[in-house]
Design a protein around this nucleic acid. Sequence first.
DNA 1: GTAGGGTTAG
Length: 517
Amino acid sequence: MHSLGVKCNEFAFPSVFKACTLTNDFRLGKQVHGTVVVTGFENDEFVLNSMVVLYAKCGEIADSTRIFDAIPRRTVVSWNALLNCYVQRDSFGEAVELFQDMTKADIVSWNAVIAGCVLLESHDCALELFREMNKESGVSPNTFTLSSALKACAGAGNREPGRQLHAYLIRRDLGLDTFLGVGLVDLYAKSGYMVDARLVFNVIPEKERSIVSWSAMIGGMAQHGHGRLALQMFNEMLKEGVAPNHITLVSVLCACNHAGLVTDAKRYFSSMEELFSVQPMEEHYACMIDILGRAGKLDEAMELVNTMPYEANAAVWGALLGAARIHKNVDLGSKAAEMLINLEPEKSGTHILLANIYASAGMWDGVAKIRKVMKDSNVKKEPGMSWMEIKDKVHTFIVGDRSHPRGKEIYAKLEELSEPLRKAGYVPMVETDLHDVEEREKAKLLYHHSEKLAVAFGLIATPPGAPIRVKKNLRICLDCHTAIKLVSKIASREIIVRDINRFHHFRDGLCSCGDYW
DNA sequence: GTAGGGTTAG
């Protein structure tokens, strides 16, 4: 158009800027900006709004803000444009400031700040804003708002508020669009209710069912340790003619991993490019290395590390460290830990896993050394915490804590369980505990880990036979894993623990993770 | 003609 000499008007410029933004062509964008100035359209509100977005998305926040300030008649769209740019560029502080300066925030503004909270994983903050919006702003939520709010609930594994959102959208007859469908499936999956996730999945209208909804189901099942069900679902999907993307395939590998299906995993991994036109990416290699490592094929895992077209990242070294722990391989463990400490010095989990490896090999001087390193470098173990939700109340537990109103009963329950546990073969794994206290004190602490307290509370606070659902902020500890398996049998209860990585369904003395985690 | 939402991996 330009070369034909057709003059661009104020209606064409916004689309051109949008195209520059989408293709990240900042050079062209600046040229077009020049044309705007030359042709005298630099006061048009639409033109300026689209320029705000262009500059912000290309990282030129200062210029973007300058253009924003120069808009003669700023509308709510101008404010929202900048607001969303701040949110997407992780400048949440600036976003909040801008939001507070707005005289009349509309639904898009609210959606932007709520999405911003979710992005930072400040789930409670997101829900708090959501409530404030409903109560005080006179703006009512739309499907965008609800999908962010659902994501906040899912991220926190908090089914109750999510369910209320579900009820709300039914009452308002909003119907399930693609995003709400995924949001609900993921909510139920992440809060431990796979049956409900499946029910929602089944009622998503066909045209709203996307590869993302399928992936959420398959990934959810994998996280719950239902590896074979996940693969069944994958086959069902293929039968429907839906093509997997790279995320679906990560979940498929993860499903094989948790079901111990090494051969299937290898088959999927080596044929994914041919069958599904998805080239193995870093994350697929990391999964495959994890699978091989867990299965004890450490040499094969290392070979893949050395031959893959990527530099080993934290996920890869983490997988190797985990494998080293399971198979008690001190050499590999220390190598992986060293790499990880370089890559992620701020995480305490690496030191702890390595200490566990030393401990299980009886290398107490190694354990002591790590304890010293942690002390000197000020790496603090994040305190383990567990939660149990009853009705809409959340009960929190910390190791050895007695402050819960029913503390006495909880400790009595654990005491009562100690004899049947011992008879069932439970031996405290004192060596896995790193607290800097005497052996006897250690056994006591171990027996009062937060997840054990939460389970004991579940036993006394829910009716006989009801499933017990616990959440934990770290990986479940090995000793607790063993103990809870036995408790599920002794007390005839299904116990579901969501740890930082996945779900453990304990039933009749076994765990759905197959002790593979 | 300008602004906003979803799935994965240690």
